[in-house]
Amino acid sequence: MSALTKLSSKGQLTIPKGIQEKLDIAPGTEFYLTVEDGKLLATPKRTSISATKRLMDFAGILGKPPNGRSLSLEDIDDAIMDAVAEDEERIQREWREGRK
């Protein structure tokens, strides 16, 4: 579905009623705006329970850490980077061994 709309002097776009209904959006809905290949992509922000969660929304979901020690975000980032580096090394090693 597509429609033609016009940018107002205040920088606002009107979303035609048919598109609003198809997307199940209402006045006040917030949008994420992205520019891709010279095109504007507007994605409605969903505020329902099924909406994308923030990392902090999951804090404590698994209970207390087994060693009793909580990690800082920096510790978590470091652990993720170490795991990614190890995985990258493994992939490259397997690729080189497969080429022999």
Rank of each mutant, 00 (worst) to 15 (best):
L71R: 14
A83L: 11
E74T: 14
I80G: 05
K64I: 13
L41G: 00
S70N: 11
V84H: 08
E86H: 06
I91K: 08
V84E: 06
S9C: 03
T47Y: 06
A83F: 05
P16L: 03
V35E: 01
E88W: 03
P66H: 04
I91E: 06
K17I: 13
A3T: 09
S2Q: 15
E36W: 04
W95A: 15
L23M: 13
E30M: 08
A85L: 07
S2H: 08
D24Q: 08
S9T: 15
K39H: 07
R93T: 15
W95H: 13
S8Q: 06
A85F: 08
T29F: 00
E97K: 05
G11D: 04
K22M: 10
P16M: 03
R99T: 12
L71A: 11
Q12M: 12
K22A: 14
K10F: 09
L62D: 09
P66L: 07
S72W: 00
T5H: 01
G11W: 00
V84N: 05
D75W: 03
S72P: 10
I76S: 06
T52Q: 08
S2R: 14
R93W: 11
Q12F: 00
T34Y: 10
A59M: 07
A83P: 10
Q12R: 09
L40T: 06
F31S: 01
D78N: 09
G98H: 02
Q92S: 05
T14E: 06
T43G: 01
T5L: 01
L23P: 02
E97G: 09
I61N: 08
D37I: 07
I76Q: 04
E86M: 09
I61W: 01
Q92H: 04
L71Q: 14
G68D: 08
R69K: 15
R69G: 06
L33W: 03
S9P: 07
K6E: 10
S2E: 15
D87E: 12
S72F: 01
T29A: 01
R69Q: 13
I25Q: 00
S2K: 09
G28L: 05
R93Q: 14
K64Q: 13
G68A: 00
R90H: 12
T52F: 04
Y32W: 07
E97R: 06
S50L: 10
G28R: 00
L41V: 15
I19S: 01
G38Y: 03
D24Y: 04
L23K: 02
V84M: 12
M81I: 12
T29S: 02
K10D: 15
L41A: 00
E88A: 12
L40A: 02
G38S: 04
I15S: 02
K39M: 07
K64N: 07
R90K: 13
Q92F: 05
A3P: 02
I61D: 10
P16T: 00
S72A: 08
S9H: 12
L62Y: 07
Q12V: 13
L40W: 02
S8A: 13
E74K: 09
D24I: 07
A26D: 10
L73P: 11
L23C: 05
D82F: 02
L55Y: 13
L55M: 10
I91W: 04
R90A: 14
L13I: 14
A59W: 05
K100E: 14
T34M: 11
V84D: 10
I91N: 03
I91Y: 08
Q92K: 11
K100G: 14
G28M: 06
